[in-house]
Design a protein around this nucleic acid. Structure first.
Lengths: 162, 162
DNA sequence: TATTGTTATACTCTATAACTATA
DNA sequence: TATAGTTATAGAGTATAACAATA
């Protein structure tokens, strides 16, 4: 899917960047800059981890939420993940086209489509969870339990508002 | 440009979500999930803050790096921001089309194009910095100085690797 | 041979607007 | 009138592949 990884038979020189990093100047003072860089680092590792399955962070989030809340609507998912209807529509379309998720018309409210994982979706999720465990450990291992608690608390405060 | 903000003359009901948030289940255990949610929250606020100027986080980062490292090449910027040549090319093209940045052929190495802010670019950056100060304070205000130090340290550790 | 810039291509994500059908 | 889903559209970002000019 993406993979910034070099060919395995090529020379590795991760420790010898050809071009020195520039002075980040004022960027270094911005919380948003460091948050973005950290997010990109984890996003990349996630993408490499999921290369074989072809799942993005957001697609996995949709699958986990559907697994944990069967029958939820697209709007429920959109609200929980902080996106909008149209974006969620596109996301669900891609997963549905791969037969990982399915829409079932609601009997109670015929405007709604209830979302459920397919059998293939549940199998995919199980495989993804195994890969994610290793991915998470690569980052969790950087911190002590107390540091990790503090980090998670801080991140939640940022997106929950206080 | 995007603006999740409702019309100002409309009723506000931020405190009354129509649809309750779903159970995030296993997602709640993932560092990457909370990092993504926090990043999206700040990204949104940044986008609203910059609505008048029409600058994204990444575009601002390119402008700040160019301001602090005049004559840097596109590859220098790409390496520093963790992206690739083609992506940076597209980014610089957009800024150049708006006359905020300009390419000047290098005398020493004629393959290179040195990047410089234009006069309009420097003026834009000055305006952006003022807006960003207020944006940053909205989030910095959520933390004590010690908490903020810990958060920044943790984020750097994630993307610098150790 | 390797690097820089470049173009072409394609997919994901994000967001707005407008439409349909339901409530 | 409001909501859920949908479609169309558009721009930004991301990544790969290939090419020309230059080192």
């Amino acid at each position: 899917m993406m993979a910034a990884k070099p060919p395995q038979d090529d020379f590795e020189r991760e420790d010898a960047p050809l071009t020195p990093a520039l002075d980040v100047g004022r960027l270094g003072d911005l919380l948003g800059f460091h948050l973005r860089m950290a997010h990109v680092a984890i996003y990349r590792d996630f993408a490499e981890t999921m290369e074989g399955l072809g799942l993005t962070q957001k697609q996995l989030a949709v699958m986990e939420l559907t697994a944990g809340n069967p029958g939820a609507s697209q709007i429920d998912l959109a609200n929980t993940l902080g996106t909008d209807r149209a974006t969620m529509m596109a996301l669900v379309n891609r997963l549905a086209a791969r037969d990982l998720i399915e829409r079932r018309p609601s009997a109670a409210d015929r405007r709604r489509q209830e979302l459920h994982l397919t059998k293939a979706g549940r199998a995919m999720l199980a495989r993804a969870r195994d890969l994610i465990d290793a991915h998470e450990r690569r980052f969790i291992g950087l911190f002590s339990p107390d540091e990790m608690d503090g980090l998670l608390m801080a991140l939640k405060r940022i997106y929950k508002g206080s």
